[in-house]
């Protein structure tokens, strides 16, 4: 089951990447955004997103239920390749379709502020989460023999690193470190790689750091009680960690919304907007949070999270 679980994580991550790739391509590519403003573009996008989600759901169930010998050598690669090929075909179609459309020409002005700006303190905080998780792994390894597992191995391992339970737990934490590093790099890229005229730059840097911290707090709070029989104090620490991690997300979500409301950016520069009558999920205006249909797409990550959890239990 554990091997399938790891393949399931990989599979669902790749599915999510396909959806994100579509988002990123549209965000950066003005021509694709024009296609997406057309009914056929929106329809194609919905079909693609629906197909990816269906493959994520059905493929996830297949991986969770199939024995290893069925997954390899052909089933898993096929499941992974299908949405990638579909995404590639969709992008090609968008490029071709755009040739028949005229891009609207807006005057392009650029502004350079000659004033300097200090590096925000929050950037330094982005370096801490991976160290905290590494410290937690070190403490777990040192104390492993004295911890009570929910599902102990029949034959005790000589070192924690040979214990399947420890390796499973640590794989989650390492997965978290990967996200920590990702958010750390994202915060650096947002600060140094995005124009200072972009109104949400600072709030997005802070949000990336907050996400890194919240993930560092939420992941152990989620996996430690699953793996270990914790004392009431341990459970309390996990609950507090979970509450603080969630609180960070809420706080920075609210701050981003405040920045959005206070911003004097033109509507075309928004990353998010609320328009119930606009059928596009991602387009020239940004991400539309106002259309209920779009929430099917936005809640897709919940499917990706739910399937591995289901497999674990």
């Amino acid at each position: 089951m554990m091997a399938s679980f790891q393949w399931l994580i990989l599979f669902e991550t790749l599915m999510l990447t396909d959806l994100l790739l579509l988002r990123l391509t549209r965000g950066r590519d003005r021509l694709t955004a024009i296609v997406m403003a057309e009914a056929r573009g929106i329809r194609a996008s919905r079909i693609f997103c629906g197909a990816v989600m269906a493959i994520a759901l059905v493929g996830g169930l297949v991986i969770a239920l199939s024995p290893e010998e069925v997954l390899f050598p052909w089933l898993l690669p096929v499941l992974i390749m299908v949405p990638a090929v579909a995404a590639s075909l969709l992008f090609r179609w968008q490029r071709r379709a755009v040739l028949s459309l005229e891009a609207e020409q807006a005057p392009r002005k650029a502004v350079l502020d000659l004033a300097g700006e200090p590096t925000p303190q929050a950037l330094w905080l982005a370096a801490l989460p991976p160290l905290i998780t590494a410290g937690l792994v070190y403490v777990l390894a040192a104390q492993w023999s004295s911890l009570v597992l929910r599902d102990p191995a029949p034959v005790p391992a000589t070192t924690p690193w040979h214990d399947p339970g420890f390796k499973g737990l640590v794989s989650f934490l390492v997965f978290g470190v990967v996200w920590n590093v990702y958010f750390g790099i994202l915060s650096l890229m947002m600060w140094y790689g995005v124009s200072r005229q972009y109104a949400f730059r600072r709030s997005q840097v802070q949000a990336a750091v907050a996400l890194s911290w919240s993930q560092t707090l939420l992941m152990p709070a989620w996996v430690l009680p699953l793996w270990l029989r914790l004392s009431p104090i341990g459970l309390l620490v996990c609950a507090v960690s979970f509450a603080v991690g969630t609180g960070l997300l809420v706080r920075f979500g609210r701050r981003a919304r405040r920045d959005w409301q206070a911003s004097d950016m033109p509507p075309s520069s928004y990353r998010f907007y609320y328009d119930r009558n606009d059928p596009s999920a991602f387009g020239e205006r940004g991400t539309n949070l106002g259309n209920p249909w779009n929430w099917a797409l936005f809640t897709a990550p919940a499917v990706f999270l739910a399937l591995p959890l289901w497999s674990l239990w």
């Binding site: 005057p107 392009r108 002005k109 650029a110 502004v111 350079l112 502020d113 000659l114 004033a115 300097g116």
Partner: peptide, 11 residues
Amino acid sequence: MASRIRIDLDS
């Protein structure tokens, strides 16, 4: 020093 310069990218 708090001035700005403006560039016309279509010029």
